[in-house]
């Protein structure tokens, strides 16, 4: 039943984009991390579905990695960090929420406009996947750019990485080794960033990156 396969894959990838928009909308750190966990769960489902369609068992391992690391370990670590850093307050955004939502919509339109003509002739499942994955990547970047809080920049970075995994699994043929090493590099990045966050907090009593700029004597 190819039509159903396609619809389910499309729905899962679409919900990733939708969850990215939710992150863009979210003002509270705790909720943001929850959405990130959900994002990773949906990613795991999507990857598992791809494994089922393509009949590639090693993608199940990818899905399991996504589920364990990105949906459970990383959000727990982030939540712990938030508690230890004592930052429950709202996130300061650079632009208004509405404006960044509009920008996100524009980015989705852009990635559709770029990717659909570029991948003409490819398997339709992969086509849609890649277009949606590019939207997730772009919205992740937008999240990093429009937030001033360092933790939310980390969240943006992680969601960006989810988009890359989505594209890679859709494209049929990413070796398992690559996926595993990417997962580990993400973990290491998280550790490094976590250490840095604590160091920054120790020094400046805040994780608002504006403080760093003030320290460097920058005009804004």
């Amino acid at each position: 039943m190819p039509k159903l396969y396609f619809d389910i894959a499309h729905t899962l990838a679409g919900s990733l984009v939708l969850l990215s928009f939710v992150m863009l909308y979210q003002r509270r750190l705790g909720a943001l991390v929850n959405v990130l966990a959900l994002h990773a769960v949906v990613l795991a489902l999507s990857v598992a579905w791809q494994a089922h369609i393509q009949g590639l068992p090693h993608l199940y391992i990818t899905a399991a990695i996504a589920l364990v690391f990105k949906a459970i370990v990383v959000p727990m670590a982030l939540r712990r960090m938030i508690v230890m850093l004592g930052i429950h307050r709202e996130i300061e955004t650079v632009t208004g929420i509405g404006l960044s939502m509009l920008a996100g919509i524009g980015l989705v339109a852009l990635s559709m406009a770029v990717m659909l003509p570029a991948t003409a002739g490819v398997d339709p499942v992969a086509r849609e996947d890649i277009a949606l994955a590019l939207s997730v990547v772009l919205i992740g970047l937008l999240l990093m750019v429009t937030r001033r809080n360092a933790v939310s920049q980390v969240v943006g970075f992680l969601s960006l990485e989810n988009g890359i995994v989505l594209a890679a699994t859709g494209a049929q043929g990413m070796p398992l080794v690559v996926e595993i090493s990417v997962a580990f590099s993400i973990l290491i990045a998280l550790i490094v960033i976590g250490i840095f966050l604590f160091r920054i907090r120790e020094r400046f009593d805040t994780v608002d990156v504006q403080a760093l700029d003030r320290f460097r004597g920058e005009r804004r």
Partner: peptide, 14 residues
Amino acid sequence: TIRRYLVFVFLSLV
């Protein structure tokens, strides 16, 4: 600032 650089990366990508 780091955020400015990110903005440049983002804008050039877009």
